[in-house]
């Protein structure tokens, strides 16, 4: 993608994106990273961003493993998944990004698959068009370090919500369906709800973006009276 880019720190792209969006809401802002980035190292930012509902699109490349560091368990690794660190297999439960986001009142919760470019493109477009925080959890194989969740593994399980005329306004149904993970794995837009993005609620942001406003030092003289 050819765009303005700030490639930040591992796990920290959401706060970077939040800062940029608030000072210039006219920017289309996408935060991206892996499952380790978004749900592990930056887990707190994920929680906060979902609650805050700034108009940011989160693309989480979820291969259920820490790839770059050569294959350790990530928060989305399956219990039992063995690695050179988790030598006896993962013993803790999986973090599910979708139900987590739903519980945090996120207004756009979706999952897609890197093996279905058409579907993925469509979901990303919808996510960007949605006003507010939108999560796109993108399932993808890691050919080097995840021999469990392979392309075939995903391909044989995935089905599309859109094929069954899914009602994206039903949060309870979305929650239940998002819990489905096993023989069958649903992808698509699970839930969508309009709620005003965070930046719309901030009075100081009414009007032009902050970065387009005029500032001058002399303005503070009107505050002197507070101190006299």
């Amino acid at each position: 993608m050819k765009c303005n880019t700030f490639n930040g720190l591992h796990g920290r792209s959401l706060p970077l994106a939040t800062g940029a969006k608030l000072v210039n809401p006219e920017l289309v802002v996408i935060a991206e990273g892996g499952d380790g980035d978004m749900y592990g190292e930056g887990g707190n930012h994920f929680i906060q961003a979902a609650r805050k509902n700034t108009n940011i699109t989160l693309l989480a490349h979820n291969n259920q493993v820490y790839g770059l560091t050569k294959g350790q368990a990530s928060p989305t690794s399956e219990p039992g998944f063995t690695t050179k660190v988790q030598t006896e297999g993962v013993k803790i439960s999986m973090l599910d990004p979708l139900t987590t986001a739903l519980s945090l009142n996120a207004g756009f919760v979706a999952r897609s698959f890197s093996g279905d470019i058409e579907h993925l493109s469509w979901v990303i477009q919808q996510a960007i068009q949605h006003r507010g925080f939108s999560l796109v959890d993108i399932l993808m194989p890691c050919i080097s370090f995840n021999k469990l969740n392979t392309f075939k593994w995903y391909k044989s399980r995935i089905y599309k919500l859109e094929d069954e005329h899914w009602d994206t306004s039903n949060k309870a149904a979305a929650y239940t369906r998002a819990e489905e993970w096993g023989e069958k794995i649903p992808i698509g837009i699970f839930y969508k709800a309009e709620r005003p993005p965070y930046e719309d609620l901030i009075s100081a942001l009414k009007g032009k973006p902050l970065i387009d406003r005029e500032y001058n030092p002399q303005r503070v003289s009107k505050l002197f009276n507070e101190f006299i």
Partner: peptide, 21 residues
């Protein structure tokens, strides 16, 4: 902006600064 932690605080500042603030 009250950030979720100081890690986020400075990252937000850098995002805002990058965007021209």
């Amino acid at each position: 902006e009250q950030a979720e932690d100081e890690i986020a605080a400075l990252n937000m500042v850098l995002g805002a600064s990058y965007a021209g603030a």
